[in-house]
Design a protein around this nucleic acid. Structure first.
Lengths: 184, 184
DNA sequence: AGGGCTGTGTGACAAAAGTCAAAAAATAAA
DNA sequence: TTTATTTTTTGACTTTTGTCACACAGCCCT
């Protein structure tokens, strides 16, 4: 995790130790849930190894809204901030190891350390930029083009994810993605 | 602007003054551009009065990706962070007054004041939450449903925006939105 | 009042994507 | 390996949305 953090901001040894003290490691088997719908999300998570998906229920179907792969952060920001129960499920698609950091600890750390607050801001900037790009996929591109963008941006996920999971993330049906694949 | 900031975080008088010193006011006529495609975006903007749209060019068409109404912040995050020329245009749809804050000043303020860094983080959290919600409109909902969500969430914009601008933001054609409107 | 201008509505048709059902293929389990 | 289970593919058909052409309304302007 420290290496991943260095990509975002510089933390000195002392600050890293403070961070390290409040982190706990969890292990997930394939299929296990990290965030349960109906409960309040009280942590942010850092995925060390494995693969996660975040999904919502809509008309009896599961709709994926995000994938998280190694060395990335994930949480349910809405529930985390509001303290309201989440509608989101976060599930391991592969056996995964996750570091978790409680909101209460994070808030305290933000307050105590300007350096950690800077890290938080920079992480959020990167996440926002990514979400803005994802949103433009839908306003600017067709289903086929969205699949091509996905293939370019996440070529490794293309192998690891089931076709149905990708389709859902792209806002189309499995059958449609299957056809798109076999056109070209 | 101070009142709007209070909604996000608490700034003491001193910090507010520091902020205030680096802000300059600009006025825009209807149709004027705030961010020009091909140039680097070097400011964040706070809209005091008026209405802005952010759009991209795609296949000879303009596609709206965001609207900004009174007392909200806007910028091109991607260009601001990378220093690369933007593809985005930000344009006034009504006569508007805008406060602008240079990236260089903001970076200095972030560094000098933990309180301002906290403000930045909290603002980004709110923006990210909003973008996440917007993205789910496309994975979860049909064109008609997206229009209903837009109507609920931004009833005032419904009056102020041309139908074509809304359609573009919802990822559909003007004709389709016109038909959706006349169905119910 | 009579042009331009811009934005909106309508119709006929084409293309894209969704639906449902069933077969084929790939995985996992026994 | 054989059987079960899940995932992907295919086909026929429906619905939704896009495309193009043009009519219509509102508004500003002189």
């Amino acid at each position: 995790m420290r290496d991943a953090l260095k990509e975002i901001t510089q933390l000195d040894d002392n600050t890293w130790q403070v961070f390290n003290n409040v982190i706990t490691e969890t292990s997930l088997q394939k299929g296990d849930l990290l965030v349960y719908p109906g409960q309040v999300c009280r942590h942010i998570y850092f995925l060390e190894t494995g693969l996660l998906r975040s999904f919502l229920h809509q008309e009896g179907e599961e709709r994926n809204v995000a994938f998280t792969s190694e060395n990335a952060f994930v949480t349910d920001l809405k529930s985390l901030r509001s303290g309201q129960p989440t509608e989101l499920t976060i599930q391991a698609l592969e056996q995964s190891t996750v570091l978790q950091l409680a909101k209460t600890d994070l808030m305290r750390l933000y307050h105590e350390s300007h350096q950690i607050e800077t890290f938080g801001r920079q992480l959020l900037e990167a996440l926002l930029e990514a979400r803005e790009e994802y949103a433009t996929w839908f306003t600017l591109h067709s289903a086929k083009e969205r699949y091509e963008l996905f293939s370019q941006k996440y070529p490794s996920l293309l192998q690891r994810l089931a076709l149905g999971h990708i389709a859902s993330f792209l806002g189309i049906r499995r059958e449609t993605l299957s056809r798109i694949r076999h056109l070209k």
